[in-house]
Design a binder for these strands. Structure first.
Length: 225
DNA sequence: ATTACGATCATCT
DNA sequence: GATGATCGTAATC
């Protein structure tokens, strides 16, 4: 039996090694639906620093959002919603705050959150998460760096397509009291946010719609000024 | 019914 | 920087 060549969509790690809690920590509040009922270019940078939480086998797995991309809907040639509703993208045309999960390149899964009220099909793609703590209990940085890697590590598959991310079910988005550990001045200003073109698309290349926290080592791809 | 391609990743040069 | 893996989707015939 020859060794497996190339990449596979199997889980990176045999066991989850992210920070785990059996109960949703009380300092976490799911983001309300109104948070997502705004233009994608406003919501995307606001998601940086928030948490993505995945309930899996009785535990909550979590990562800090450090890189996202905005897709604008019908007016955006790079968006799945560009040509209008199809069986695949119908979640995008529904209410805001729901998971849009799809398979790309035959083997990778991408996770988005639907943005704007029903009828407007904007969304935000999650490109990288950072583990909440270093050490033996945390996953390697690379495990959630990249849209395909983060879904693999968090066991997010297409069965979660359409999931309401504003409720603490199997998958949700939440804010915590971060960045409470920073000095007061930094807390007011927030972390530095950088903007760039989106990655891996051929249409609407020039649009600055990728937002990331340059301070995070988990960011994928280039970090232009 | 058939086909072309993609919001990626790992491995190679 | 280039390439191959791999398959669901949507457009075309």
């Amino acid at each position: 039996m020859s060794p497996r060549r190339g990449i596979s969509a199997e889980p990176l790690l045999a066991a989850p090694v992210l920070i785990m809690h059996r109960l949703l920590p009380s300092n976490l509040a799911p983001l309300p639906r109104v948070f997502f009922e705004r233009p994608p270019l406003e919501v995307a940078p606001d998601l940086l620093g928030k948490l993505l939480l995945r309930r899996w086998r009785g535990a909550w797995l979590a990562g800090r959002i450090v890189e996202v991309e905005a897709y604008l809907g019908r007016e955006d040639p790079a968006a799945h919603a560009w040509r209008g509703p199809t069986p695949r993208n119908r979640v995008l045309f529904g209410p805001a705050g729901h998971a849009y999960v799809y398979l790309i390149y035959g083997l990778h899964t991408c996770l988005n959150v639907s943005i704007q009220p029903a009828g407007n099909a904007g969304c935000v793609l999650f490109r990288a998460l950072e583990p909440l703590a270093a050490g033996a209990a945390a996953s390697p940085l690379r495990a959630m760096s990249g849209p395909g890697r983060l879904t693999r590590t968090l066991h997010i598959g297409r069965a979660l397509n359409g999931c309401d991310l504003t409720r603490p079910g199997r998958l949700c988005l939440a804010a915590d009291d971060w960045p409470c550990g920073l000095p007061a001045r930094a807390r007011r200003a927030g972390p530095e946010i950088r903007v760039s073109r989106r990655i891996g698309i051929t249409r609407a290349r020039a649009l600055p719609a990728r937002f990331f926290l340059p301070a995070s080592p988990a960011v994928s791809g280039p970090r232009p000024l």
